[in-house]
């Protein structure tokens, strides 16, 4: 649905050429929710603005629905933009217009009649749960409600693609969840292709099918969200994921573990679960079967798109041979076992 080919964007700065994006190649499939994550200054905003040419790339091509936007003239580009909806971090609603008239704006631009607009906008307001607020002004709405208006407005022209520019970054966690649920719902119901940029890994985890990690204007890693979360390759990705999933051992625990008597005769292991392994009572079965004592020190199990994953830090005591057998038994059940080191 969206293809970015060799996108490079540079600005003329005082200290020479500043490159915001360098050679970005990306392919986003129809109907998927694609996330782009990076820290501030990584070039995320520039990248998403290149998709609808709010920023014109210095080099490269942008194909949306098979059409190269970079070669279109102004009028054709405006027409193409009707097929690309966009929502913003600060909503960008017109304060002078009511909820209804804000959603109607893109339809007014294409010269739709008032009755046709009414027919289109009313169900959209119901879809985003704002049917009762149509006559209100943005200033009378909460942040979450404003973003819902933004979403309805973006959908008004029945686009094929929805671009979300830090759409939840100005919202509290609970409102963020409800907006993400709405986006997911819209994606399923309308088969819309959604591109999300964010600095929050939580958003990627809750919403996206695939993710690309942007750093210094380059894509350093990409893949489906589950595998990026369970097997992050790059250090930055690991750092970003650590914010969401507590792989980090608490410092107090580390200190206690470093005392020799505790680890004496015991094996410290980190167990990584992914896929179906978390549904079985593995730990208690392991304990009975191999007569080892398992002390769970720290851990977290989460799920992505209904697939559970996570890790446990355990201290196991038992006969050496039995322990070895126990680890082998776990490995057969898709649990990755690593020796945990304590400094």
């Amino acid at each position: 649905m969206i293809q970015l080919q060799g996108i490079t964007k540079f600005y003329a700065g005082s200290a020479g050429r500043v490159e915001a994006l360098s050679g970005i190649d990306l392919k986003i499939d129809p109907g998927e929710i694609f996330g782009i994550i990076g820290r501030s200054g990584a070039g995320k905003s520039t990248l998403i603005r290149c998709i609808n040419l709010l920023e014109r790339p210095s080099e490269g091509h942008v194909l949306v629905a098979g059409r190269d936007l970079t070669v279109l003239d102004a009028a054709a580009l405006r027409a193409a933009r009707h097929e690309i909806g966009m929502i913003f971090q600060h909503f960008n609603l017109l304060s002078s217009r009511t909820v209804f008239d804000n959603v109607a704006l893109p339809l007014e631009l294409i010269g739709m009649t008032r009755s046709a607009i009414e027919e289109r906008v009313t169900p959209l307001l119901d879809l985003v749960g704002l049917g009762d607020h149509r006559g209100r002004y943005p200033a009378q709405l909460s942040g979450g409600q404003k973003q819902r208006v933004g979403i309805a407005r973006a959908l008004a022209s029945q686009p094929k693609v929805l671009l979300c520019d830090e759409a939840t970054s100005a919202l509290d966690p609970e409102t963020t969840r409800s907006i993400l649920a709405l986006l997911r719902d819209i994606n399923r119901r309308l088969g819309l292709t959604v591109v999300v940029i964010t600095h929050e890994m939580q958003v990627i985890k809750d919403l996206c099918d695939r993710v690309a990690v942007l750093d210094g204007g380059r894509i350093i890693e990409q893949g489906d969200v589950f595998s990026v979360f369970t097997q992050p390759q790059m250090a930055l990705t690991q750092t970003l994921i650590r914010d969401v999933i507590g792989h980090e051992t608490p410092p107090g625990l580390l200190e206690r573990l470093s005392q020799p008597h505790l680890a004496d005769g015991a094996a410290l292991r980190r167990l990584f679960f992914s896929g179906q392994s978390t549904d079985a009572p593995l730990i208690s079965e392991l304990s009975r079967r191999f007569s080892v004592d398992i002390n769970i020190l720290h851990g977290q199990i989460d799920e992505i798109r209904g697939r559970p994953f996570g890790s446990l830090l355990v201290l196991a005591k038992g006969e050496a041979a039995q322990l070895e057998a126990a680890w082998a038994w776990l490995a057969e059940r898709d649990v990755r076992v690593e020796v945990a080191h304590v400094q």
């Binding site: 709010l54 405006r78 933009r81 009707h82 631009l109």
Partner: peptide, 9 residues
Amino acid sequence: EAAQAMGAT
């Protein structure tokens, strides 16, 4: 910017 993204002249 929002209006331009909607294809406004």
